[in-house]
Design a protein around this nucleic acid. Structure first.
Lengths: 199, 199
DNA sequence: CGACGAAGGCTAACGACCGTAGCCTTGTCG
DNA sequence: CGACAAGGCTACGGTCGTTAGCCTTCGTCG
């Protein structure tokens, strides 16, 4: 290498995540990140195309971290229990890194999406449980249903949108319970193994 | 009145909504809004505290509009049908004003929330259907479950997060169907209001 | 009927931030 | 030992948000 690198892309992204959680998405400026890694703002452009690119990298890293958390949820064999565990893990993750979580599903050109690959990896455990509950035929829509519910719930909770009173934790548990029943239940394609693990 | 007003708060907010949908939240600048109502940027500060305030007003106006759309959904007496209609209306609204929709559930201090009142009004029809399906006792968590699901689904759809293939419309219908069954179904609190739909 | 004052608009200007241009430093390798 | 490429830096231009201070307009009241 020609000249000594005083930082690295990885360090920049890590710093970006830290700044993001500390000061929110508006505080995620080139200067703040640069300062944190010990260089001046313009130097970041040697590693990143522009601020938007940096934000996308931070979002991708967050998805990656989320995927690891979800993958770490043990497979108990009881699909209902696993569903609850996954939902809980997602919620815990969102609470531990709310600003980053808010970056995961941001509208925009598909090209700007965080790695398809990372996203697929993160959804794998959910797909597994969905398949166990609703049968392979309905696994995809079932996974989409639970994912949408969990994501929506978490977003609204973080936004403070549950303002009508009532116990929010209870509502979360209620949702998990009913969803599990709904997916395993009705005309459920291959209700077969259903709740307790088909294979 | 001392001097002739060349615009009004209402006009500013309306212009803000238009700019928002045209150029995205990043394009919602004081200058753009000012130009659209025919004044210079600094003049907006006579009606609005700062950009953040303007954004919140735009969000509130969007919630208001959403509430009207939901209230316009007819009450057929069949809770399952009504649930589908409400979900469909919400999705249609989000598609007609995606940028504005994205402003509704933004994390932040509760004080910054769009009018509690407007939000409550917008949720009224959902609460009604939820009560009919799950019984009065579980109405609130049931409403939260469907709202969270619908919101999450729409957000993910707008974000282009359903990248694993499959039919998204079908997944939406699947979700409505299963949720309706789940809320009406299991240990469902009270058959009280009940689902008029036999199975 | 004329002066006053308040509301509302405008220009000027500051500071924060993104992004570009161009230069300097520092290893590496022929 | 000297070229060169990568990486960092300073200087700068442009866009925005926001504030300060001035001017215009008119309803009001002496």
């Amino acid at each position: 290498m020609p000249a000594p690198e005083r930082t690295s892309l990885e360090a920049v992204v890590t710093a970006g995540r830290a700044v993001l959680e500390a000061d929110g998405v508006a505080g995620l400026t080139m200067q703040a990140v640069a300062a944190r890694v010990g260089v001046r703002a313009p130097s970041l452009y040697k590693r990143v195309a522009d601020r938007d690119h940096l934000v996308r990298l931070v979002a991708a890293a967050t998805v990656e971290a989320l995927g690891e958390r979800l993958a770490a949820v043990p497979d108990s064999g009881d699909a209902v229990r696993d569903l609850a565990a996954l939902a809980g893990a997602l919620r815990a993750f969102a609470r531990s890194a709310p600003a980053g979580y808010g970056l995961i599903f941001v509208p925009g050109p598909a090209a700007a999406r965080p790695d398809r690959e990372a996203l697929a990896r993160a959804s794998a455990p959910v797909l597994r449980v969905a398949a166990a509950l609703a049968g392979p035929a309905d696994a995809l829509p079932a996974a989409r249903t639970v994912t949408a519910w969990a994501h929506g719930f978490i977003t609204m909770e973080l936004a403070g949108a549950f303002a009508l009173g009532g116990d929010v934790d209870e509502a979360f548990a209620f949702g998990v319970r009913r969803l599990a029943a709904a997916l395993a239940g009705p005309d459920a394609g291959a209700g077969a193994g259903g709740v307790s693990r088909p294979r």
